[in-house]
Amino acid sequence: MASQGTKRSYEQMETDGERQNATEIRASVGKMIDGIGRFYIQMCTELKLSDYEGRLIQNSLTIERMVLSAFDERRNKYLEEHPSAGKDPKKTGGPIYKRVDRKWMRELVLYDKEEIRRIWRQANNGDDATAGLTHMMIWHSNLNDTTYQRTRALVRTGMDPRMCSLMQGSTLPRRSGAAGAAVKGVGTMVMELIRMIKRGINDRNFWRGENGRKTRSAYERMCNILKGKFQTAAQRAMMDQVRESRNPGNAEIEDLIFLARSALILRGSVAHKSCLPACVYGPAVASGYDFEKEGYSLVGIDPFKLLQNSQVYSLIRPNENPAHKSQLVWMACNSAAFEDLRVLSFIRGTKVSPRGKLSTRGVQIASNENMDAMESSTLELRSRYWAIRTRSGGNTNQQRASAGQISVQPAFSVQRNLPFDKPTIMAAFTGNTEGRTSDMRAEIIRMMEGAKPEEMSFQGRGVFELSDERAANPIVPSFDMSNEGSYFFGDNAEEYDN
């Protein structure tokens, strides 16, 4: 993207840094990872977990959730003011799984939030270390993106479920800051804005008074975040219109849905970061690795190297396929839920299948599930090659597409044709070009129609051997075009429920 120079890199967003050079960025990201790792080690000690239990991804998720809940100030305040039966607002906890007599047992633990905050700050040299908290939120978000298709949420806001490739980060909490905003897809931002506008339509006082002023500035800020994701002048001009509207209503909703559809071809720039579970960072720190000293990046080879040398386990339900569970977590670790499966298959070195073909449910185990038949197995999170994460949407291309997802959002900077089903997408653009945004709409449609099938995206960008740390010898991959490109292809993934 041309304006790259004016933006802070995501590592800076990730670490609240002012302008830093590459070495400083690597050190501050490393410091953040160190903090998460030290916190995780301490929690495993508190909970008396064995090494194996500490490497269980379900335990990692519970521990991450506990610290996120302990620092969720708004919710904590709300819980104190609106006490609900049987919930102690000062405590947080969740299921911890232990191996007892050759069987997995679930144990519900409860801790004072104050105590968890103390352990977290102690692991982070006394700081609140917001960057580390956001990092864990993005890992949870990436896992949700890989596990669930947001059909219901899309339909509720009037969008087409086939636009799911635009929904990265749709389950990120509001408090995820600049680093969170960077990884949100165009569809996620559109959905947040539509929800806001709908509230304004239904509630006369939404934009009024002292609160209304705050609401208005939040609305304009979200519009600017979305505008910054678009790469064409016409899309940005249309966002200006939406932002400046005196009284946002149905016309703005129409414009936003139009823009979301246009992003299936004229893709937005959305950041991709490899955020790993805390149970990967903990053992690495415990083994003596100093992330701050060595430096770390979320968008280069580092996460690949770390996963190459990590042992992570997962509980497996009786009829689940461990290899499929591994694929789910591998995609989440690489922030690749909406990437082209052919690119992923090449990088991973084994075939990556669409969601609907995987015999696996989510990673988390519900409290009512029976533990008797639970097994555990090693997650295979290694890769054959590594590639640089991208934040450009890439230019655009036609490809055989599917009944489910009709476009992709690249996660890796790797040369390819970008699949999208042009006739299906263009069919949504018939007729409606009147109104105050008509010239911009016409211009956007013209650009979409001009998108050429034979153009290559990320020209000359390749993948790298894991021994090639400096990215000196790019390998331009070859793809098996007979395979499906979309992950949520004609899909039956479970729906995400809060």
Rank of each mutant, 00 (worst) to 15 (best):
G228C: 04
S3E: 00
E80S: 10
R236K: 15
M331P: 08
M159V: 11
D491K: 01
S486V: 00
R204M: 10
R74Q: 14
E46L: 03
A218C: 12
E465Y: 00
R416G: 03
V270F: 04
R19S: 01
V190Y: 06
S376C: 11
V476Y: 12
N21S: 14
A471F: 00
G462S: 02
I475G: 07
F39R: 07
P318M: 13
E434L: 08
K293L: 04
S28P: 00
C44M: 06
M167Q: 09
I41K: 00
R470L: 05
Q122W: 00
Q459Y: 03
R267G: 06
A451V: 10
E434A: 12
I475S: 03
K214R: 14
D340W: 03
F489G: 00
N397A: 13
T130V: 15
T378S: 15
F412T: 00
E495F: 00
N432Y: 08
A181D: 03
V329T: 04
F71A: 13
G212E: 03
M105S: 09
L307W: 01
P453Q: 14
A442G: 14
M331D: 02
M137Q: 08
Q149T: 09
S274K: 02
G54N: 11
E443G: 11
K229E: 04
Q241I: 12
Y219V: 03
R174P: 05
D127V: 14
K351T: 02
L193K: 08
A181I: 00
N124C: 12
T146W: 02
L466M: 14
S297F: 08
D302V: 06
G490L: 11
T45Y: 01
G300W: 10
P83W: 06
D145F: 02
A22D: 10
L226S: 14
N125P: 03
A233Q: 07
R162T: 02
F304K: 03
V363S: 08
M222T: 14
M167G: 13
S217V: 14
T23P: 01
T396D: 01
L264I: 10
D480P: 12
M163P: 00
R213A: 04
E320C: 07
F464A: 08
Q12V: 05
A442R: 01
W386N: 05
Y148Q: 05
W330A: 06
R174I: 04
E64Y: 13
L154G: 01
Q231Y: 01
E449F: 04
L266H: 06
K31H: 04
R175M: 08
I25N: 00
F338A: 12
